[in-house]
């Protein structure tokens, strides 16, 4: 239910230990046999890079994460989903994605969040839609449908019924195929 969403949001976006920004870098330090978890925002993490840090993850993966976080920061300004128009910053504000395509557009930025929310898991292992077998529904067709429907909405708004009829045919075709 929708109400359950806010709980998840909490799990997705932890606050930075140093300041009040959202933490995107999560570290585990082992001190005298005790595990200490650290949650930092990009800025504080960058300032802390000198710290001796130990993690569950191999160090090269950790570094990749750092690089990814930083590139993610730059991406925030530019990248938006060409299907629904959402930006990473908008997603972070609402906690809700705009369309199925966003899982591909923001895959790199989403991964650490997904792993935090799902006990470090990153791959679906459950039920798969029956008709499409193991490959699932091709994303490309889903993307095409989204685009066609958007164009249809525009055509209807502009009262271009000829074009709307054509688009309806195309949608029907794409849905059936």
């Amino acid at each position: 239910m929708q109400a359950e969403h806010s709980a998840g949001e909490g799990a997705l976006f932890m606050k930075c230990d140093n300041c009040n920004k959202n933490a995107t870098v999560h570290l585990t330090e082992i001190k005298a046999g005790k595990k200490i978890e650290k949650h930092l925002c990009e800025q504080c993490a960058a300032a802390n890079e000198g710290l001796p840090v130990k993690s569950h993850m191999p160090i090269n993966e950790l570094l990749t994460n750092f690089v990814m976080q930083h590139s993610g920061m730059q991406k925030e300004v530019g990248t938006s989903c060409e299907q629904c128009g959402i930006t990473w910053a908008e997603f972070r504000q609402s906690g809700l994605l705009g369309c199925p395509n966003d899982y591909q557009v923001f895959e790199k930025d989403l991964m650490p969040l997904l792993q935090r929310a799902h006990e470090n898991m990153s791959h679906h292992v459950g039920k798969v839609p029956a008709r499409r077998g193991n490959s699932g529904v091709p994303m490309k067709r889903q993307v095409d449908l989204t685009r066609l429907r958007k164009e249809l909405a525009k055509a209807v708004e502009a009262e271009d019924y000829e074009r709307a009829a054509k688009l309806r045919d195309q949608i029907r075709q794409a849905e059936g195929g």
Binding site: C84, G85, I86, G98, C99, V137, Q142, L145, T146, R149
Partner: peptide
């Protein structure tokens, strides 16, 4: 498939 999520 083929529709945005409801927020959009």
């Amino acid at each position: 498939a083929g529709f945005p999520f409801l927020g959009r």
